[in-house]
């Protein structure tokens, strides 16, 4: 058993378990906290995949900013305990069955197509600055400069949208 597998399996178990726990916890607060664990494990996977910059961005943007926003709204609304009244009774079992179908289909597609055996480089052998902030910045500001600038417009629109939506009608 090599060291990659030794790291991969426990983190994958934590990742899947926290995702399942997020789905089935009654309180929205617990769901949010489990999702933070899940984002942390995904950041660990990014580190194992030689993407240190993305791992840090994952922790700051997702586990930091986005989940704080979620927790803030959950606490603001005070609606963390919803009564579980299903108006469509057969929806929940049907959804689980369809989700299983989706999983089986994607796994079947994955293992029926031939050539995805490509081995990843072990994370114990450092690739020379692949995925480092320097390399990411270089490609971001040369090859992807226009999409990067468009992103700023997107963020501006989102900011204005959030302000307009939450502004009270009379104000």
């Amino acid at each position: 058993m090599n060291v990659d597998l030794l790291f991969f399996i426990p983190i994958a178990l934590v990742s899947v378990t926290s995702a399942v726990a997020m789905l089935f916890s009654r309180h929205a607060i617990y769901s949010a906290l489990f999702l933070i664990i899940n984002f942390g494990t995904i950041a660990a996977f990014y580190l194992m995949l030689n993407a240190p910059f993305l791992a840090m961005a994952q922790v700051t943007v997702y586990a930091g900013a986005i989940m704080v926003l979620f927790l803030f709204v959950i606490m603001l609304l005070g609606a963390e305990q919803l009564r579980q009244r299903q108006s469509i009774r057969w929806q929940q079992p049907l959804a689980i069955i369809l989700g299983l179908f989706l999983l089986v289909e994607s796994v079947y597609l994955l293992f029926s197509a031939g050539n995805q055996k490509g081995p990843l480089p072990s994370f114990t052998t450092l690739l020379s600055d692949f995925g480092s902030p320097t390399a990411i910045g270089e490609i971001l500001f040369n090859q992807y400069l226009l999409p990067f600038e468009v992103t700023s417009v997107l963020l501006l629109v989102a900011m204005i949208g959030a302000i307009v939506l939450t502004k009270s009608e009379k104000g």
Binding site: D4, S15, A19, F45, Q116, P119, P121
Partner: peptide, 18 residues
């Protein structure tokens, strides 16, 4: 040296759960 399919499998599982 993990095969890439491990990560894709995990990704598929997480996507289905979502």
């Amino acid at each position: 040296m993990l095969p890439v399919s491990y990560y894709i499998l995990l990704s598929a599982v997480l996507f289905s759960l979502g």
